[in-house]
Amino acid sequence: MTHTAASKPILKLMNVGKSFHKQVVLKNIHLTVQRGEVTVILGPSGCGKSTLLRCLNGLELIDEGSIRFNELELTPKGRQWQAVRERIGMVFQSYHLFPHMKVIDNILLGPLKVQKRSKAEALAQAEELLERIGLLDKRDSYPRELSGGQQQRIAIVRALCMNPEVMLFDEVTAALDPEMVKEVLEVMLQLAREGMTMIIVTHEMGFARAVADRIVFMDKGSIIEQGNPKSFFSEPQTDRAKRFLQQFYEIETWKGRDVI
């Protein structure tokens, strides 16, 4: 994807830091995301990548630095997050659909109650989105009647129906059976092709390589490397990233029993 030098970043993080009970989970994070860009955050478990994502829509609050969303400074205490959250969609590892609501009501809750849109207009959009992911026939089902992959795709639609400017994906395939991973990744890939700005935390290396405009590699709460996927995967700059990638390649090249 190309960007003119003049384009304003949609998200700009400067020197972001966060601690939980004196344990530093994020430090010195600088990150700029352009409109339409797909950023994939990689890193070992506990490196702070999910926390970073959650800081972007105020599910966690940062202790240091600043986050700018378009022209809006997100940092000050008492920020009205509701207005920000309806413009930044988020999808979670365990879907978190509302179990007491039908699929369609899950999707319409935000548009109707938060954005106060007209029922007819929101419903039309919800149905169109469901149609696109092939789940229109599930509109009146309850989440428990759906497979994990279906639930996760509905969760993506729930976020999309708010017409967000950015979508955050927090390990959205990690809880899925392998055969359902693909159907979810396809939806995300399609979204990326349509130009959605996306920030994705994932462990799916193949997908990361395919979808990313930029890879951000984190370890111990810091960004230690970032670049385009091609160079990151073929020639990582840091030892830590090399070792991290090595783990995945090793498993891919295992043969039979001689591993032991």
């Binding site: 997050w81 959250r85 969760a155």
Partner: peptide, 18 residues
């Protein structure tokens, strides 16, 4: 109620009362 329900509700912009 699972913590994630709160996260999901907040992430679509619901107020605390909602």
């Amino acid at each position: 109620i699972a913590r994630g329900q709160r996260d999901a509700g907040r992430s679509i912009g619901l107020s605390t009362i909602q």
